[in-house]
Design a binder for these strands. Structure first.
Ligand SMILES: [Zn+2]
Ligand SMILES: [Zn+2]
Ligand SMILES: [Zn+2]
Ligand SMILES: [Zn+2]
Lengths: 167, 167
DNA sequence: TATGTTATGTTATATTATTACATATAGATA
DNA sequence: TATCTATATGTAATAATATAACATAACATA
């Protein structure tokens, strides 16, 4: 599993994630069915987020279903069980890179090549916890997504100004 | 402007935000037109996020336009100029509580009463900067949204488990 | 007023997601 | 094994969000 944008053995990356999902589901008595497994596999193929209808297109080509609820059902399962995340900024879905661990994921999204890298930071979680506590707010979920340019795309394109547009 | 969930003089809150927008636009030579101003005003009315079609419903009732691009044009302006933010998790829009300041906003979203409170944390921004830098990633924008229960809703409803569902 | 620029309006359509329910299948129970 | 029950999949229709492409109107300023 990549910790960042460095090259890695992605075949192993995929196999490892599927194996973890297999054993986790076996442990918990969850049905890791053909469709669910295939959707996860599709999400694992690249470190990119895929839209529900991209996934559905693939399923459809493979004779695994043609209607939206097919893929949304599978995504519900994968997200609920922590095998995938929804990337809110993209309305798309990404395989989890740290399955089986409690984590508050942080996504780095390259606007140019669309790659998505998941990282996690315990300090950040603590930090948000402190911020929320000060306001009396009780955290249940977090959405943390960073948009910008990945290392290789920085060479190809100038940066846009850091948030916000206002000076 | 509220720093958290405490009660405050919301009429003053609205007036102050509109006045800031007026003067900012005057300074920059931006056209703070009737529709744009009204959309901001609608967003300011409560500390909640409103969907584009909610806003359009209001505009439509007031004879200010009936088609989606009307409201999306206005929202584009308000977001581009930092008067409003899109809340990605809700596909909805919220007036900025710190207009005129450079900031990476953090939103606390109550799942029960749907209130949205914007805060900002310079340390968090630094922290994400460090995380990204370690991966060689260049930040342009951030999406930081916390979901959970606001102080008053905590009294009314039990919390759900903290992220993630996985044990 | 003439001219270029920005804002608004119109039509159509794209994209993402859900509701509600029917059928099929897996796993548990008798 | 046969039945029961819960879960998964399939179907149809529709809801909700957002954009493309372009026409018209209003504004800015020379
Ligand atoms: Zn993850
Ligand atoms: Zn890139
Ligand atoms: Zn703001
Ligand atoms: Zn609340």
């Amino acid at each position: 599993m990549p910790l960042g944008f460095e090259k890695h053995d992605h075949t192993a990356c995929i196999q490892s994630a599927l194996a973890k999902a297999d054993s986790y589901c076996a442990d918990k008595g969850l049905q890791f069915t053909k469709i669910r497994r295939r959707v996860l596999e599709l999400l694992l193929m690249e470190h990119k987020a895929l839209g529900a209808y991209d996934l559905l297109g693939n399923l459809s080509n493979e004779g695994l279903g043609t209607q939206p609820p097919i893929v949304y059902h599978a995504l519900d399962f994968l997200v609920a069980n922590g095998f995938a995340h929804k990337i809110e900024k993209l309305n798309a879905y990404s395989a989890c890179c740290h399955p089986g661990k409690t984590h508050a994921p942080v996504f780095m999204i390259c606007r140019r090549c669309k790659c998505v890298v998941e990282t996690q930071t315990e300090p950040l979680r603590n930090f948000l916890g402190t911020t929320a506590k000060a306001a009396g707010f009780l955290i249940e979920r977090t959405v943390i997504e960073i948009e910008g340019l990945c290392p290789s795309c920085q060479k190809a394109e100038p940066a846009r100004p850091y948030y916000p547009l206002r000076t």
